[in-house]
Design a protein around this nucleic acid. Structure first.
Lengths: 183, 183
DNA sequence: TTCTATACAGAACACATCGTTCACAAACAG
DNA sequence: CTGTTTGTGAACGATGTGTTCTGTATAGAA
């Protein structure tokens, strides 16, 4: 990819995430984005069809990034964590949010938008499904499987949002404990 | 209140809820609303400052309605329900959604918006707080009170949304059962 | 380095939507 | 009937959108 393209694309993303942490998505104008990114109007539309397109691409990028770091750093932590080794995946998620992914946290804490939350929950549901066996013992026989998976995912998502909105005061280990305590 | 005011106000609400079940809030224009409500542009702005204002008022109206019917119909069901009598409040909520409140269900099932969900969750949190004692025995000592209340509320909200998005196939009693099974 | 393709700048454009204004008509209350 | 309130319809400036154009600068290949 052309170096120029990369530069402007990054500039647009930076400007956009900055604005997203300040105001709701639908209150952000293309004019603000290009002013902050210091690019021409036509340039913006050369890269993205609409504002929604930009948001889509940003989501893709953010969650690609999460998956990458999860897979690359998880093995290192496996032997450090002294509990159930499958639980470490979730502990690691909380740690990652606290230490690395300020962009993601900033988006989750501010005016969240529908599309972004959909991406987020999809990602969490994938993760929960992968570790399904971990929760099997906690499941009551009276609820169907799809409801159960949905419930775990929702609880994880709501726990993360509660944590972030309360300033992430609790250390990741404690939050992970909360999460498993209520299941 | 003037009969004319009531008529136009209702016409605006009808047009607005109809449109809300078809498309996202921020894609709805004032032009569409007044065309569907068959009123003049100036009339709309005589009743509501902005589109957001209209949404606000609609939310107020919807949740006032829920509270009214809850309080008026609950006593009749108390002696019919054979389980714990506090659980009947939640059973009743599910029944009410299935039988009476098509407007609310339609809004919850379609493109939901931030403001509307905030109202909804606030209402549920009030309800959960009122019946706090019902959940005390299920609470683990390791989680703090505020997290516990938040978790119950989220679970209730997510259960309702899951139910609606799956076509409300399960009878209210079953769903109430699911809700209490996962706590 | 030189050449060529392509990305960007900057301005102008038509278009849609917003929220306001005003003069006039219709419905209301006493 | 009479004065007041409410709705009508058209027009307005302001703001944002997405496109188009010409000229310039830069990347990457020869």
């Amino acid at each position: 990819m052309d170096r120029r393209q990369r530069k402007t694309r990054d500039a647009i993303f930076r400007a956009f995430t900055g604005l997203l942490s300040q105001k709701e998505f639908h209150r952000i104008t293309v004019g603000e984005i290009i002013e902050r990114a210091d690019i021409g109007r036509a340039t913006f539309y050369a890269h993205f069809e609409t504002k929604d397109d930009l948001l889509n691409d940003l989501c893709e990028e953010l969650f690609c990034h999460i998956v990458d770091t999860e897979q690359s750093t998880e093995p290192q932590h496996h032997h450090i964590f002294e509990g159930d080794c499958s639980e470490s995946a979730f502990l690691h998620l909380f740690e990652h949010l606290q230490n690395n992914d300020h962009n993601l946290v900033s988006l989750l804490s501010s005016y969240n938008n529908e599309l972004f939350m959909r991406y987020f929950k999809n990602h969490l549901e994938q993760m929960v499904s992968q570790h399904r066996s971990l929760f099997a013992s906690r499941k009551s026989d009276t609820v169907p499987d799809d409801f159960w998976i949905h419930h775990i995912t929702s609880t994880l998502s709501d726990t993360i949002l509660w944590w972030i909105h309360n300033g992430m005061k609790e250390p990741p280990k404690i939050i992970t404990g909360y999460f498993f305590s209520v299941l």
